Simulated scan of single mutants.
Amino acid sequence: MSHTLFIADIHLCVEEPAITAGFLHFLRREAQHADALYILGDLFEAWIGDDDPNPLHAEVAQALSQLNIPCFFIHGNRDFLVGKRFAHAAGMTLLPEEQLLDLYGKRVLIMHGDTLCTDDVGYLRFRAKVHQPWLQKMFLALPLFIRQRIAVKMRAGSKEANSSKDMAIMDVNQQAVVAAMHRHHAPILIHGHTHRPAVHQLMVDGHPAERIVLGAWHEQGSMIRVSAEETALISFPF
């Protein structure tokens, strides 16, 4: 059956070898049989530059480059600094933060999902700041060891900030969802980020629509399979 796969929030890091093994297994056994693979952000737990010599990055790039299918990537909030150098090594095509697809006659809008969390004003303010090109250029020019220290501090600060936030604030805003789907005339939205896998039914412009949320790869894998016959959210063991 002809189909396309979507994944997000794998959060690869050297501290979680089981997740890495599960992801590599997924590429070999599942992804290579698809028409295409879309990675919707947070493939890595952190990213401080394409020049980081972390061997995990080279291993993942090699595995992705060996897929004999097109692979696409939308930046997440953890790995928004993934650049052209890594994308080329991995054989990935970098996409903008919102991308409309025509799949098997279906209009599908894809994104990471963090921009939909408009109730989290503090996060969006931070996001706007770190997405400024001049600041990113300045950060990437710093010595690697300094970038590593900054990344550790930022991750610790993010965990502390999130621990005191209401869970509802960190979820998507329904009006933001409808606005994005209306903007692209898309009856199907696929995203990650919230780590709350589910299929949500809603109305957009007076018509039934669907928002499908990918799960994070903590204890099991999560993917969405789109074909002409179905759009399915699937969890699976590593």
Rank of each mutant, 00 (worst) to 15 (best):
Met92Pro: 05
Pro133Lys: 09
Met203Trp: 01
Leu43Val: 12
Lys159Ile: 02
Ala176Gln: 08
Ala63Asp: 10
Asp102Thr: 14
Ala176Asp: 10
Lys84Ile: 10
Leu43Glu: 11
Arg155Lys: 15
Ile39Val: 15
His218Cys: 00
His33Asn: 14
Asp102Ile: 07
Gln132Thr: 13
Pro143Asn: 10
Leu202Thr: 11
Asp171Ile: 04
Leu116Phe: 05
His75Tyr: 02
Arg196Lys: 15
Ile10Ser: 14
Gln220Ala: 13
Val178Asn: 00
Asp119Cys: 04
Leu12Trp: 11
Ala34Lys: 02
Thr115Cys: 10
Ala168Cys: 02
Phe72Ile: 03
Pro55Lys: 10
His200Ala: 02
Arg149Ser: 14
Phe238Pro: 10
Asp50Glu: 14
Leu40Arg: 11
Leu24Gly: 07
Arg155His: 10
Ala216Cys: 07
Ala151Phe: 06
Leu189Thr: 06
Val60Leu: 13
Gln136Glu: 11
Gly221His: 04
Asp114Leu: 05
His200Thr: 12
Met223Glu: 06
Gly91Phe: 06
Phe126Val: 08
Ala90Gln: 09
Thr231Ser: 09
Pro187Asn: 02
Leu189Gly: 06
Ile146Val: 15
Lys159Gly: 00
Phe44Gly: 00
Ala228Ile: 01
Asp9Leu: 09
Leu124His: 14
Leu43Trp: 10
Phe23Ser: 09
His193Leu: 03
Trp217Glu: 06
Ala21Cys: 02
Pro96His: 05
Ser222Phe: 01
Leu12Ile: 10
His33Met: 03
Val172Asp: 01
Gly215Asn: 05
Ile39Trp: 08
His112Cys: 07
Pro187Leu: 02
Leu67Met: 09
Asp52His: 13
Ala36Asn: 03
Gln136Asp: 06
Ser227Gln: 09
Glu219Lys: 12
His33Asp: 12
Gly76Met: 07
Thr115Ile: 13
Trp47Pro: 08
Gln174Glu: 14
Thr93Pro: 08
Met92Ile: 14
Arg211Leu: 05
Lys165Thr: 04
Ile110Cys: 08
Met167Tyr: 08
Ser222Asn: 12
Ile169Ser: 03
Cys13Tyr: 01
Tyr123Gly: 05
Ile234Met: 08
Arg28Met: 01
Leu135Met: 12
Lys165Met: 12
Leu64Gln: 07
Phe145Ala: 15
Gly83His: 10
Val82Phe: 03
Leu94Pro: 04
Leu142Cys: 02
Arg29Gln: 15
Trp134Ser: 13
Leu64Ser: 05
Leu135Ser: 03
Phe238Arg: 07
Pro237Thr: 11
Gly83Ile: 13
Asp171Trp: 06
Ser65Gln: 13
Val199Met: 09
Glu45Ser: 12
Ala156Leu: 09
His3Cys: 09
Met223Thr: 08
Ile188Asn: 00
Arg78Thr: 09
Met223Phe: 09
Ala21Ile: 01
Cys117Trp: 06
Val108Met: 06
Cys71Lys: 15
Asp51Tyr: 12
Asn54Pro: 03
Ile212Ala: 01
Tyr123Ser: 09
Ile19Phe: 02
Ala232Trp: 00
Met138Glu: 11
Glu98Ile: 02
Pro96Tyr: 10
Glu59Tyr: 01
